[in-house]
Design a protein around this nucleic acid. Structure first.
Lengths: 354, 354
DNA sequence: TTGTACGCGTTATCAG
DNA sequence: CTGATAACGCGTACAA
């Protein structure tokens, strides 16, 4: 009908491109590009003209094309095991904040604690041409080849919280050892001398560290660990309940429990109460993560806070450093954050004995 | 040094492109493209050769380029108010599942209940050239121009849970009215006759519906609503506590409370207990959302479950329909899911009176 | 300061 | 069935 090259069909997007602006203004695309990207080689007047028309026509830059051209997007890929609970949402929150400040957007993927899915997530992110990949490992991830592809493409890779045991990576972690140590020492200070531990899967760095912190704190009080007072599990509520039922059958049950997670301690608390065992008078409790529900239970649960937002920010900072560094430099930086113990009713005998 | 066009620099990504495959095999890029995309016009033998080499060289398709060319990516953008709590993570879970099944990836953005951020999120998604935008509105969103841009680009737009009041949109919602009606009727069946309601912001469709469900249930019992038994708030724990403190000062306090959310009911429960009021004997409670903590409180909280995963799946289904439909057809489909009441201790007088 | 021309990796069109 | 070529929208040496 019309002889125009681009026929603005009524229903289709009015996607106005740099070429359109250039044609309209009678300048070259180069000029437009420079005006929009605030390049130095550009006359102030021309720049204003371009910017004005761009606004008028509601020009939207096609980041896809830019990414293709530059071989890099402004997207950040995040892989986490799950987004229930408090920890990961908070970390993601920190990541989003810092990323947005640096002009990046964030894609979030869940591995649902499944290596297979984790692998596919990484693929997805690579396909989306992300500028960086930020990962917290799935519980059952024990091999790490799927991350080689990321590195081999020169894309910055940062692990956080759950990191590979190899250590040959860039990572941000909490000082889990210190957190566990603090919590355990606190229970000991409350007078406990038979202190049990609900431990997590030991192939995950975090649970290993928490167990070690527990052991080391015992040692400072001259206490030897007892195998029957340490159980290993997936840290669910049920796992906590089951462990407690077992411990209560012992000739000498524990007088305090440090759990490597909050859910498992919740299970312990519920079972203790149902069995008529008083918390904290008979048995004190402390958990890890400072989940929201720790302030809801009765008594409230003492727990180690993980500085979630700070972790997210640190992850992005590390990514930015890697992105800025020349590809050749293979750094292996590790950022370590300090946890904080939140002391609540489940461990305070002084208050409860009243 | 070498006469090759592409000099594979040691440190840079070994990104092998279709052109590389074509050159290596002595065929055209067209052929390679067809083999890879399973086009019909291609010899079986040639196809195998291409596929084999592609695998050998670990060819990774550049979806970015494809998206640029086709003007469409396989990315789905999701905007939610927040990802704490149970509801949104679960819905996202449903979305991810269904999207992945259809070959789409998912970007999640949080508006943090802020229109400004919501606006920017939508921009971000458009920049990322998403194939669809799935939105649950921020609490204070009352204007909707920022979504016009999405539609004007011909990108399918689906709202869920918190939708614009205009109704001129594609959406997936829970039958909030039915949920509230069920919960209220249940409390009435427990013998309550002075039933209070903790209502949410009425410009949000969901809270409006829940309030109406409450009112309609009262009506079926011939009860007239009383203004002093309905409070409006942002539904936080504190809001619930405050409302209860007020109600307890009334000459005739309520004998049951239906809250439009679980947090607000939690606040109510805590305050009631601290004041020595027995739940459910003196006052029954029911909330909305079936949050994880409803099973932790004592007594456990009766609450309306929102079919989160189903909602996510429905959202994606609707998106796919819109994407398949010709641009001209302006449908306004609304999918309505049925909620389910989870009855727990906070509302069961029969059990507690024992 | 501005413009020309090319390339990023893919797909669509048309010709053979 | 296969191939050459143009195009998607943008960035950037290089030339003017």
């Amino acid at each position: 009908m019309s002889s125009r090259k681009k026929q603005p069909s009524a229903s289709s997007p009015a996607a106005v491109s740099m070429a359109d602006l250039a044609r309209e203004l009678g300048v070259s695309m180069t000029t437009v590009s420079r005006a929009l990207s605030d390049h130095h080689s550009i006359g102030a007047a021309t720049k204003q003209r371009v910017l004005k028309l761009a606004k008028k026509l509601n020009y939207q830059p096609n980041h896809l094309a830019a990414a293709l051209r530059k071989g890099q997007s402004r997207l950040l890929g995040v892989v986490v095991p799950y987004i229930e609970g408090k920890f990961f949402p908070s970390v993601i929150q920190g990541i989003e904040q810092a990323a947005s400040k640096a002009g990046f957007s964030v894609i979030v993927c869940q591995s649902h604690e499944d290596v297979q899915l984790e692998r596919r997530n990484v693929e997805t992110l690579l396909h989306a041409q992300v500028a960086g990949v930020l990962v917290s490992l799935a519980r059952n991830t024990q091999q790490f080849q799927h991350f080689d592809k990321v590195r081999s493409r020169g894309i910055p890779l940062v692990f956080f919280d759950r990191i590979p045991p190899t250590g040959l990576v860039n990572s941000v972690v909490l000082n889990d050892h210190a957190g566990a140590f603090q919590a355990t020492r606190h229970l000991l200070e409350q007078g406990c001398r038979r202190l049990a531990h609900l431990a997590g899967p030991q192939h995950l760095n975090i649970y290993q560290q928490r167990r070690q912190g527990y052991l080391d704190a015992l040692a400072t009080y001259g206490l030897a660990p007892e195998d029957e007072l340490i159980t290993y599990s997936d840290m669910t509520v049920d796992d906590g309940a089951q462990a407690v039922r077992h411990w209560l059958t012992l000739p000498r049950p524990p007088d305090g429990i440090f759990g490597a997670g909050d859910s498992v301690i919740l299970g312990a608390l519920q079972t203790l109460k149902s069995q008529g065992v008083r918390v904290p008078q008979d048995i004190t409790l402390a958990g890890f993560s400072n989940e929201g529900f720790t302030a809801i239970t009765e008594p409230q649960l003492t727990s180690v806070d993980q500085r979630c937002e700070e972790m997210g920010e640190a992850v992005v900072r590390l990514f930015l450093e890697l992105a800025a560094a020349p590809e050749s430099t293979f750094t292996q930086r590790q950022v370590v954050l300090q946890p904080e113990l939140f002391i609540r009713g489940s461990s305070q005998r002084a208050l409860a004995s009243a």
